[in-house]
Write a protein that binds this DNA or RNA. Structure first.
Lengths: 367, 367
DNA sequence: CGGTTTCATGAAACCGGTTTCATCATAATT
DNA sequence: AATTATGATGAAACCGGTTTCATGAAACCG
């Protein structure tokens, strides 16, 4: 019936120029460089424009200025709250800087990642890759074509924001060890993820230092289901504490343990990472708090700096700190397993001051 | 040092034309209308283009064709798994149809919604609003400007996809009642959400029919935290079963109950909606399964139909069915509260055939 | 008061494609 | 063989802005 999108061609700069009896250049200036015009001209033009319902055509503007006014964020999995939080930070900051945001979800698939990048990079001024799964070479190649900021990937000559979880995983390990755990598992994240490698290294080094048995449990994807599926192996291996790659997997592990009739933390201690789901678990999850949204904001800042040729050289390397927060999923190992007993900690939801990282990492650090 | 984004201006159609010794028009045709050219010319041009690394400029193309090749998806909260699932469906289908997707998260805020729309609509061919919080008037106004598809909002003259959860909430109510519950709460979603109104109506009508006491618990936002916060009221009100607006809230309710020392389903039955988190809860949540991704795909299909003037009149109204799935969070009310006793159901994770909706709603229905 | 700035504005080129229309060669038709 | 389709290609206009450069008027200056 009423064929909705009314086909009345929207007014162009020429229409406004005619109506306001000025040149097209003047209309253009009224919108983009008003200070070049007399106040009264600006007033008249904008009035006429408003009356006609004129809005500058974004595409035309993009073509002639060469600036798209858009940026793209690529994430491996928007299903993961870590990335949705990141996305929020990006969108907020992008909007403040007057950019619109494309979102690409690569579904952990490097090839889809490439396809999406190809599709998006044509219409953006810059890209943000969060935890990309692409190869170093592919990333470097992309960085040569478009301004690019990485999050959680450490490549020389590409500006990047790194979330330092490694040192906090070390703290978490120490925490488990101080509770008396002697046999601990690290439930791994994606093999291609930088952060997985970092965390593994940190955890290994602490285990070695204390002579603790550490087992690695590889998983297909960082999902609830994979966490859940790892439980069989966790139980069989006889460990008493599990460090998961992230909160989502930790939650899966908790659910898996529960369905095996085991309770957390009495039968097993579990620690997550990201902090995004920690308070949504029951009992609340001891976890590493990551300021995801802040990482997104910083990425946008870095990118806009880059686009405006400000500071931010391509060697910028920003490291964001994280905090270890003890909640209710860590406790001494069960009697049968304990090699050292400590008083039972009281579940609480406030940051454990003793374990919060010191000044050295409290503020972003540029190198 | 190596200032990364190499500033070598990327080759234009003119460069390719010169190198291939053909006109710019021919190069253009080689890419957009190859059938108009001789096979050998196409081959030569594309070869030269490839060698030069030429890629058609998306913006220029958009300007001259008037088609942006983009679409935008607006959601109230990407933190909610319902919307991330939807988003995935949209992205997948959009990519197949060769569209890139802008994502806008309005944070449940109608004003931000408007700002984002203004920002995005300039560079998209069409919009998809999922569960918009804007007023009917504002939405209609937008629909007059740009092709627009609604998800979970029922406005005449705007093509829309509706997820029929209402009739399945009725089934869920019947389920609780058949278990013996006589006092039930509906923990509400956003007052501005169409689906909330639908669900409330359905639940009310069943309650009235059976003479059941139904209490409404309004909440600020459909979040885990608000679900959790509603628990105090749930307990005080003496109800034995809670129907939540969605899985996220149901999860919050479960966590809240747990921290009050109450167990699900022994002390209280809980039912969620969306199915997205149901298997991530412990015990697994009895919930209404929604095919979120499918809704997103359908929305894109509808929109592309609309854009190509195909079928899809502006009065299209697609209704997607949902299914009631009994898992482990519903059981007869505790003794003290029971007004009617039934055998305890065995927790299971397969769709309860008896409660799956019949044929009438199994297939999308167009009116 | 003539000469130099400064300021507001317009004409026209430009961004990088697409598309209409004209042209010309070749194939098909009579 | 003359005529008409047909097909491949090029010239130029166009999409809707921005921006350079030129121009004329007003302000400034010694």
């Amino acid at each position: 019936m009423s064929s909705l999108p009314a086909n009345k061609r929207s007014p162009t700069i020429t229409d406004v120029a005619a109506a306001a009896k000025v040149s097209r250049a003047t209309v253009s200036r009224a919108f983009s460089q008003p200070h070049l015009l007399s106040a009264e001209t600006v007033a008249r033009v904008t009035a006429v424009a408003a009356q006609l319902g004129y809005v500058p055509n974004h595409t035309a503007r993009a073509l002639s200025t060469g600036r798209a006014g858009n940026l793209a964020l690529m994430v491996p999995d928007i299903g993961n709250p870590f990335f949705t939080a990141l996305m929020r930070g990006v969108q907020t900051r992008a909007l403040e800087a007057d950019y619109a945001t494309f979102l690409g979800d690569s579904d952990e698939n490097p090839e889809l990642e490439d396809v999406l990048i190809a599709k998006l990079s044509a219409q953006v001024d810059g890209l943000i890759f969060a935890a990309p799964r692409l190869s170093d070479e592919a990333l470097t190649a992309h960085a040569h074509r478009k301004p690019l900021v990485l999050i959680n990937r450490d490549l020389p000559n590409i500006p990047r924001i790194l979330i330092d979880t490694a040192s906090t995983y070390a703290v978490a390990m120490e925490h488990l060890i101080s509770l008396g755990h002697r046999s601990i598992a690290y439930v791994e994240g994606p093999p291609l993820a930088w952060s997985n490698a970092q965390r593994l290294k940190a955890v290994r080094s602490v285990a070695r230092k204390h002579g603790i048995r550490l087992i690695r449990i590889p998983t297909a994807r960082p999902t609830f289901e994979c966490g859940q599926a790892s439980v069989r192996e966790l139980i069989d291996s006889g460990i008493t504490g599990a460090l998961a790659y992230d909160d989502l997997m930790a939650q899966g592990i908790m659910a898996g343990l529960a369905s095996h009739g085991l309770s957390v933390p009495d039968d097993m201690s579990v620690i997550g990472c990201d902090g995004v789901l920690a308070t949504r678990a029951y009992p609340p999850l001891t976890s590493i708090t990551v300021h995801c949204a802040e990482a997104g904001e910083q990425a946008v800042d870095l990118l806009t700096d880059l686009l405006q040729g400000r500071a931010a050289s391509s060697t910028t390397r920003l490291v964001l700190p994280t905090e270890f927060v003890i909640r209710a999923t860590t406790a001494p190992p069960p009697r049968g397993h304990a090699h050292g007993m400590l008083p039972r900690t009281e579940p609480n939801d406030t940051p454990a001051q003793d374990f919060t990282r010191g000044d050295s990492a409290t503020h972003p650090r540029t190198e």
